[in-house]
Amino acid sequence: MSDVSVALPLGRTRMSPRKRAKISRVVQYAVLIAVVAAVAASTDWSNMREQVFNLDAVQQMAGNVPHAAFNTIKYTLSAFAVAFSLGLVLALMKLSSVRLYRVLATGYVEFFRGVPALLVVLAFGYIVPVAFQVRFSSITVTIALALGIVSAAYLAETMRAGLQAVPKGQVEASRSLGMTSGQTMRGVVIPQAFRLVLPPMTNEIVLLTKDTSLVFAMGLSASDMELTKLARETLNSSAVGGLTAFVVVGLAYLAITIPLSALTRWLEKTTGSKGHV
């Protein structure tokens, strides 16, 4: 026991942990700067300015951006409405005491999580009309169903976790007041679970926003065009500076998704902090 201290490596030659961390950080920064400089130096800037950051091209397409952005948002929100309601039903099915419901919900989640969203979009564009002899009146309905059905599979898992995270005592208190299991779900469990799943749900909306670009697969009329499609059309139709469209559209996507994250943070702050014990 007494010779433990002797065994400690107290050699004067070793650096202190703090000094070592400092040197390691300097090395990291140096590498980072070197990489950025190398990329910048090997870029053909004059060509970039003409092709990718072409202000004339920006001016030419600018008029079409608001409409395309509006369509992107419209597709996102309608798909999310489908995903939210369907995801909630699936989450409740997963937690059901009825085995058949659990099996069905699990099968659904596994299937739509495993299949590429593009495939589902194509199925809705071409297979569903053949199979059911229906033709959706608007592209919005088709895309909302296709993307909503895929997104619901992810949301179901998120919501199930949220519902399960609400303490059992909450259900017991509610039931012992005479509230039915349905009233308990709606009045006590779901509102608390909603708050818990707000951050992962935002994540899902952001993913949906980007997935709306998959509508290109269905062939859109000009009025149905969303951001990504707009960029491709611009690229195809303009002689020079067409690549600029991708920069513009990228910024437009960010203009949609970043406020969304801010909104979630605000919602969390206003509803969350007071609520939880």
Binding site: E172, A173, G178, T180, V277
Partner: peptide, 20 residues
């Protein structure tokens, strides 16, 4: 049982108030 519980109040060790 929901009807019976309506007439039976219960107080828990952990309070179990609805935080929202």
């Amino acid at each position: 049982i929901d009807r019976v519980r309506t007439h039976v109040g219960m107080v828990f060790q952990q309070f179990n108030l609805f935080p929202h």
